[in-house]
């Protein structure tokens, strides 16, 4: 029982990180029709920014986070302007390939910046835990992950519902010509979508090295698990990113806890594969995910 609760709590925490990354993917996908494979690199650079502003620039951690988010947002907007804008009107596949190129370019930069040592996130949570019912341990960092993700989703939801530019991004996503006819500068909305993805990448990046683990360039690959999350939730659904992220996180954590004992014949590190297995199953039986729009599969 204790193990179960602790495992679920860890899964929800990790799933929240996938959800924030997934939200970045979904915004870019909805807003610009581009599948953004550069998101993991935005995350690792965001993680570096937070760490740098904390340890090298001497900002308090809670000030470093928003500053890093702004830096990553500017980076996202710059990528859109330089690499993706010329691809407008080109096949979706070509634009996706451009983002793969951007991913490797940014990862190289991140490797230079981070160096060979493991960098610390500078977070205040470390390995501290809350203890319930005498013996159930829930790490503070997992609570922080869940709370941050929920706040991020609420903020993004309110932004798309109530703000002028949020409405304009949605209009652009829905019908570009009609958005233009309302006076929306469509290119600027593409840039804004990428800026949001960058900021969310940095926010997720905060947690990649938090909780006492630290991060290195290769930690970027963790972000790839946001892909199974959004495919499960639906590529074009914000709600799907949240729920898909949480489900993937919990499934992964449960299999890490129980698979070695219950099904050792599946091999070691099976939990690393589980998210992708879920993704394959979803693609076979419901390719548009739990909350996605059915047409999406035709893209």
């Amino acid at each position: 029982m204790e193990a179960l609760i602790e495992s679920i709590a860890r899964g929800l925490g990790q799933g929240s990180v996938y959800a924030m990354l997934g939200l970045g993917f979904v915004i870019v996908y909805k807003g610009t029709d581009v599948v953004n494979f550069a998101q993991p690199a935005l995350m690792i650079l965001g993680a570096f920014f937070v760490s740098w502003f904390t340890f090298d620039a001497g900002l308090p951690f809670f000030a470093a986070v928003p500053v890093a988010m702004v830096a990553a947002a500017l980076l996202g907007a710059a990528i859109e302007r330089v690499a993706l804008r010329p691809m407008v009107g080109q096949p979706v596949f070509s634009a996706a390939m451009v983002t793969v190129g951007v991913f490797f370019a940014l990862l190289t930069i991140a490797t230079r910046l981070i160096g060979t040592d493991i960098r610390r996130a500078g977070d205040p949570w470390g390995l501290n835990a809350f203890v319930f019912a005498d013996s159930i341990q829930v790490f503070q960092v997992d609570v922080a992950k869940v709370v941050t993700a929920l706040l991020a989703f609420l903020a993004v939801g309110a932004y798309f519902k109530y703000s002028r530019s949020g409405l304009a991004i949605r209009a652009t996503a829905s019908d570009q010509e009609t958005a233009l006819a309302q006076g929306v500068k469509v290119g600027r909305m593409f840039g804004l979508s990428w800026a949001l993805a960058g900021a969310l990448g940095a926010l997720a990046g905060v947690f990649i090295g938090a909780g006492g683990v630290g991060f290195e360039p290769i930690s970027a690959l963790i972000a790839l698990k946001a892909l199974p999350a959004i495919i499960l939730g639906g590529l074009d659904s914000i709600k799907g990113a949240l729920i898909g992220g949480l489900i993937i996180g919990v499934i992964e954590s449960l299999s890490r806890t129980y698979q070695p004992g219950l099904a050792p014949w599946l091999g070691a590190n099976f939990d690393q594969v589980v998210p992708y297995l879920v993704m394959l199953i979803v693609l076979m039986i419901r390719p548009y995910g739990l909350f996605g729009t059915p047409e999406i599969e035709r893209v």
Partner: peptide, 30 residues
């Protein structure tokens, strides 16, 4: 649009996934 020209395109082209209020508010984008 900024110069003062408004248009209703052929086929209406409202944003079907927006509420009526949101459709009107996007019209006031500029």
């Amino acid at each position: 649009v900024a110069a003062g020209i408004g248009q209703v395109m052929e086929g209406r082209r409202i944003f079907i996934d927006f509420t009526i209020d949101e459709n009107l508010r996007i019209g006031a984008h500029t």
